[in-house]
Design a protein around this nucleic acid. Sequence first.
RNA 1: GCCCCCGUGGCGUAAUGGAUAGCGCAACAGCCUCCGGAGCUGUUGGUCCAGGUUCGAUUCCUGGCGGGGGUACCA
Length: 591
Amino acid sequence: MDLMDISFKNEIATAIGRAVRSAYGDKLPEIYGAFKTDETGFDVFIESKLEIPKDIKLGDYAFPTFVLAKIVREKPVEIAGKIAGLLDNDSFSVAGPYINCTVSTSRVAETILPQIFERGGGFGGSTIGEGKKIVIDFSSPNIAKPFGVGHLRSTAIGNSLYRIFEKLGFECVGVNHLGDWGTQFGKMILAFIKWGDRKELEKEPVKYLYDLYVRFHREEEEDPSLSDDARNWFRKLEKGDSEAVELWNLFKDYSLREFERIYKILGIKFDHYTGESFYNDKMDAVIERLDKAGLTKMSQGALIVDLEEYGMTPCLLRKADGATLYSTRDLAGIFYRHESYDFHKAVYVVGSAQQDHFKQVFKVIELLGEDYADRLVHVGFGWIKFADKAMSTRKGTVIFLEDVIDTATRKATEIIMKKNPDLPDIEATAQMIGLGAIIFADLGVKKHKDVNFSWEEVLNFEGETGPYLQYTHARLSALLRKYEKDVAADVDFGLFQSLEEKALLMHLYRFDSVIEIAAEKYEPNFIAEYLLELAAVFNRFYQRKDTHGKLIKIISDNEQETGARMLLVAGVRTVMKEGLRLMGIEAPEQM
RNA sequence: GCCCCCGUGGCGUAAUGGAUAGCGCAACAGCCUCCGGAGCUGUUGGUCCAGGUUCGAUUCCUGGCGGGGGUACCA
């Protein structure tokens, strides 16, 4: 028995559809014509028009009659009255032009709660992605540069999308397309040869390389010849010059060790670390393939694919000096991923600044006539700004992600020491909370907007924050600890009477559709918004008072009532924990 | 110049084209004889401008204004 198959929405739509048919039998051909449907499709159409009223007191679903007004040439209010008169069910009511429908609380409860109870963390998942692979390219920091907070967006969004798609049954492949190739390494190598010292490098490798990088860009402004020398060094690296390769390997080893430490803290794993250098020996094949297709041409000494007729600047394959570019490497990456994974979608979680780049590259694939061209997706996002400024690696104004994690963790430790000094394993919990605050500061904002990442914002654990969600989870967990019996699913669902309980149940009911929308729009923020609302609704339920202003406790002397409420509490906790997991945030039992 | 993104109270943020624009921070006023106050309740305050489409626009279209990004040999 799967009660979810008989959704409330579907039932309501069918009832309304039936009423419309009997009210406007003579005008049905026009109605069906207007909505390009037939009798069987009509109820589906109605269902698609159902809305959730702003105020839960109005009902749980609403049908706006405006859509029919023009066709039947009657006022929406009259239509609503006429249709409602034919609905022989007192769960429907009319409010102006809307037909509102209320589902009984017990009905919602008996549908949703046993299901959460049985499926646990699997609740909200589906199998729509079964047998399909999604390659997600995310994080992708540059070797020999620090992991700054600027890298957080791709990392957090990509990791969350990975988990969201996985929950929908897709097989995900997480790829870290390390920036380990390109002219910048000519710069690093040159800078190290000019000013570097191996002993100093060993002490704090990434910091040391970063200082060299900043110095290079400072001196480059005074002495432009450095730019040419750097390009020259990159060309030598590409040709396998032993000195260049040795240094490059050295930088790469140090950096990878550093990155892996940070990913471990964040709880993120990649299936593959295939950086740009991985494609170095695949460049010729790319160019050959494009040549054969007749897409390439020389222009100003460089090899390009001309995209002018599509209103784009050309896609550069090889520079005048013979070195390849990131477009060439991304094309190689697409070919490789297609051959290796036969993906359903290949997703690139990369900043919006690179939108034109991906448009070009995807266009080239399309021009090759590849059928998977429209399955390439660039998920762009805005900048992380700190104190209203974008951070620049070159200028040395980067804020290290690890410093932010440390500061947030320290702040969490202080708060725990004050509020809950007996908490076991304070250190681990504080880190969970610090990370929760940081990740939520990112995912709490729609991806295409810039994130204003100030210390004040990250270190504030009150209001709409990660720690607020974690706190709510800890509070739910505390209730379950205090309730010494096992939670059981066979409760009296008729005991759910209050509006607060209804709101909670309806919200739990929406979880799976929120996950689907988040996946469809590649937008983890939907999960964040959903959980904030879940926490708010629960906390209102938790602190509701009777008419005398006395707190109505969840755990009371009434065993039946308590049992029912605890089933609800367990359900909310499961969804909260699972939702946080989808964002890459851990949920502490205590904090 | 051209292309893309953003513009919602003092600040931050939400709203499949729908009902009275929802939250958070800050401020002010309340709520623990406490199932965890990292919470809850209340108050003040908002859709950049001008047109258009629509029964209905924060949302869609056109044109401005403001901010950010991109605009072939960086990634």
